[in-house]
């Protein structure tokens, strides 16, 4: 006595989709190419300044603070220093990167979030205008900055990520930013 088991597709009377062995193997191969778990990735915090896309390494951003975080003005500091914030028993500076990156100062009083950034033994808040995402990006998607990158940005950009045909995102080097700020730039 033999038992017959229904084959896939028979239960709903729909003929099963047919595929050649070659197609099946190729599809499997494609899937492997997309999910390459060995490829190193980097977490990026994506944001905008003057509507231009920038990113900082996620490893350097310890906290994202809301726009209503009180910032206290301190006199006798350059205009690029917004002030200080009082955060859980610590005082941290809050700076703007616009002047350092050659961007026009934002218009209006609407303030965006603050990224708490640490690099080279220094921690400071960095004011951004818009937080876009926190994203894991494969290293192969990050390209070396091209020669055509403006001289103003070049010292602070460690890589570019071509998001699409229209837009490229600049990955900023927090250590270079803080170093330049301390040297009186921005």
């Amino acid at each position: 006595m033999t038992a017959e088991f229904p084959r896939d597709g028979e239960a709903n009377d729909q003929p099963p989709a047919t595929q050649t062995l070659g197609e099946a193997l190729a599809a499997h191969g494609d899937a492997e190419a997309v999910v390459d778990i060995d490829e190193p990735t980097q977490q990026l915090v994506l944001f905008r300044l003057n509507d231009q896309p920038f990113a900082l390494p996620g490893s350097a951003v310890s906290e994202i603070l809301s726009s209503d975080q009180p910032v206290y003005y301190v006199p006798g500091l350059p205009a690029s220093t917004e002030g200080v914030l009082h955060l859980r028993g610590k005082i941290e500076s809050v700076i703007s990167l616009h002047q350092l990156l050659g961007l026009p100062a934002p218009e209006g009083n609407q303030k965006g979030m603050i990224l708490l950034v640490s690099a080279a033994g220094i921690t400071s808040g960095v004011r951004i205008e818009q937080l876009d995402d926190v994203s894991e990006v494969t290293q192969s998607m990050l390209q070396a900055p091209p020669e055509t990158l403006s001289g103003t940005l070049r010292p602070y950009v460690s890589a570019l990520w071509q998001i699409d045909e229209q837009e490229a995102l600049a990955l900023l080097d927090p250590e270079a930013l803080f170093d330049a700020y301390q040297q009186g730039l921005g």
Binding site: Y72, V74, P75, G184
Partner: peptide, 26 residues
């Protein structure tokens, strides 16, 4: 609190050495 490190080299006066809060005022 001492003045945050990033601001030490940018202050107009080196006499500005720290910050505190008193009666909710810097």
């Amino acid at each position: 609190y001492p003045l945050p490190k990033l601001l030490l080299s940018r202050r107009f006066s080196t006499a500005l050495c720290g910050l505190t809060f008193h009666q909710q005022q810097l």
